[in-house]
Amino acid sequence: MSKANNHTLESLIEGCINNEHAAQRAIYQIFAAKMFVICLRYGKTKMVAEELLQTGFVKVFKSIIHFRQEGSLEGWIRRVMVNTAIEYYRQSVKMMPTESLQEDLNRAGNEHSGLDQLALEDLLALIAGLPDGYRMVFNMYAIEGFSHKEIATKLGITEGGSKSQLSRARQLLQFAIKKRQEVEYARLEK
């Protein structure tokens, strides 16, 4: 971000600290779209994603006084959204029984994903099609960058369980992507 934007963000942060609704609206307008994608990734449905987005922004505005400006405001708001999704998951969704997978994880990495042909909504639909546990582990590990140990701590599962769920999520995603590609090819052949 430029210095002007940084100055604007600082003033907006001050406005949010002073509980100014205009500043809050401005912050929301800036980061809502990106945060909504995150919420769509963690939420199974759009309604859940909207609830997560709303709850997450309320937390942001209430706890923005604790923002120490050591990192970016977007990264801080993103963490708040992820933590809100994790909390929502732990409160409402039970983890599915996991089974250890003894398959070669590297095998899936060698295949071509074919995601570049998919639109954002399709990608989000693929992720949303995963079971809750798989989706959580996949989002936290593949996109947010959490380690299996951290995932296990946050979700209250074992580290092995996190790994197996991640592998299972990958398999399901690849299967879904392949199936979607086949459907696309069939439509093009017609």
């Binding site: 994608v37 060698n110 995601l115 995603l173």
Partner: peptide, 16 residues
């Protein structure tokens, strides 16, 4: 993992 990389690349900066 390539799949993870592809998802992160496509979804990290996505906006809706």
């Amino acid at each position: 993992h390539p799949l993870d990389q592809a998802f992160r690349r496509l979804l990290a900066d996505a906006e809706l």
